[in-house]
Amino acid sequence: MQKDGIGKQPAIRRIKGKLAGLPAISYALGMLVLFIAIFAVGSATFLTRYNMLTIGNSAAILLAVAMGQVFAILTGGIDLSVGGIMSLVSVVLMKTLEPLGFWAYPLSLAVGIAAGFLNGLVNSRLRIPSFITTLGSNGIFMSIAYMISIKPLSAPSSSFGVLDIVNGTTLGIRNIMLLGVLVFVLFFVIQRYTITGRNIMLLGSNEKMSWLSGVDIFKVRTIAFTLSGLGAALAGVMLASNLYSGYPTLGTVYILNSIASVVIGGTAMTGGAGGVLNTLVGVMVMSVINNGMNIIGIDVYAQQSFLGVLVIIAVAISFDRSKLSVIK
């Protein structure tokens, strides 16, 4: 009887329903517009084509790591090891560029994926809270990076050609931005169009129910952290190629920035709400803030303080308190 009736509603009501369904992302979009307006007024150079490209460049790297992070957060966990993974991957890439050439890329990505897989395994099988698991493993990954090389490694000039995969341009657009778009599409498809992606949402929304409905919660949790490792690995190779170097503290700042992007985008720390699209907007907000503040001349550390406050505000707004009886 209602089989067809439900899809057919007045357009206005449908739009209204959609807006009500996406409050978190609309906050983030509002924030984006606000900051763009502020910086556009505050600086003449902000809206130039060149500056937009600069923003896109840095956004691409942040996007990759945040795309991974959001999967960890969607399960209700967190990944504090993305920095360690990025650093480790950058060092591995620089170390293997000369002997392996192009094949250094898949190798580095594999290292990052393996690191994320380990996080997932420890978190789900040993049943250790993810923030402890990844706090510990971050140290381990950094140590391994240090053991490979204490000093920053630079790309050998013979390999510059290989690095053009990231640094070159295709049809007048910089590859790194194309990569950013590709990464977004990849993670978007995983979240929206695969069973694993759906199961991650279910798990984050209601773990007990997911288990009772036959979802393999161990596997799904492990996959979520593996995806986080993949995101960090992609960001690591992009950043290292972009800088022509890799070193054991390269990724540290991205721990904060990736979490901030996810949270500002409106993905709930309790899991199950938000996602890749929200995080895209969160990353844009972050990149605009970083760039705009640089242009206006606010120093890097003031920016960090500002982000810290922004994260607290974003969580205070988006955190679903009804889901937990006790806030710890």
Binding site: M201, G204, S205, N206, K208, M209, S210, L212, G272
Partner: peptide
């Protein structure tokens, strides 16, 4: 609400 539904989802 606890065991049967993901109330956050549609």
């Amino acid at each position: 609400r606890v065991e049967g539904l993901a109330t956050d989802l549609d």
